[in-house]
Amino acid sequence: MLNALEVITTVVVGVMVGVEFAVPFFINPIIKALPEDSGQLARAHSGRLGGAIMPFWYIGSLVLVAIWAVAGRHHDGTALVVTAGALLIVSVLLSVLVLVPINNRVKAWTPENRPADWKEQMHRWDRWHYVRVAVIVAAFAFLAAALA
């Protein structure tokens, strides 16, 4: 049973990492290349979609890691799992304290009501998202190492 939990947790976190990795390296460059206001509208739509789904994914991943850490506390690699959990906590805090407030503004923007500094706010979100991606990639690496 523990083996199944380990694999499921690693896959769930790994897919989340893949989705979040795709945002700055694939999705945002595509969005930035869209004509006129389409890019800003796409970012707003992406903010609504991500804002609805990602909280469950992040918290669900953290819960799975916590269950793995408790269930496997007497097994090799537990320290790696706990470290991954700590990194996921950092990613959740980073999201709630920095990224979500920006996202909550972005998702309501239209070309008619966006603020003058909307591009600067997008760049700030992007910079913090790079940090979050680095943190969750590290968490995923610790989970993968715990499996080995």
Rank of each mutant, 00 (worst) to 15 (best):
L99C: 03
N104I: 10
L93F: 15
A71R: 11
V65R: 05
R127Y: 11
A144Y: 11
A44Y: 07
A138Y: 10
G51R: 02
V100L: 05
F56I: 11
N103F: 12
L93E: 07
P101Y: 13
A108C: 07
F142M: 15
V65K: 02
S46W: 14
F142Y: 14
A84D: 07
E112L: 01
H75Y: 14
H75W: 09
A108F: 09
I102Y: 11
I67T: 04
A138L: 14
F140N: 04
T110M: 03
V137Y: 11
L64G: 05
G72A: 03
G72D: 04
V90H: 00
G50Y: 12
S61A: 10
E120D: 09
V137D: 03
Y130C: 12
L88S: 06
W118T: 01
T83E: 00
F142Q: 05
S95Y: 15
A108T: 15
A146R: 06
H123N: 07
W109F: 08
M54I: 14
I89P: 00
R48L: 04
S38Q: 09
R124Y: 09
G85F: 06
D126G: 08
A69C: 02
N113T: 15
L88P: 02
V137A: 09
N104D: 15
S46C: 04
I89N: 00
W128Q: 01
Y58G: 01
H75Q: 14
A66C: 02
R132P: 03
S61C: 14
D117A: 01
W125A: 01
N113E: 04
G85M: 03
S91H: 04
F56N: 09
T78I: 03
A139L: 04
V135E: 02
H74L: 02
A145Q: 13
G72K: 11
F56G: 12
R43E: 10
L88D: 05
P101I: 05
L87V: 06
L99P: 01
Q121M: 11
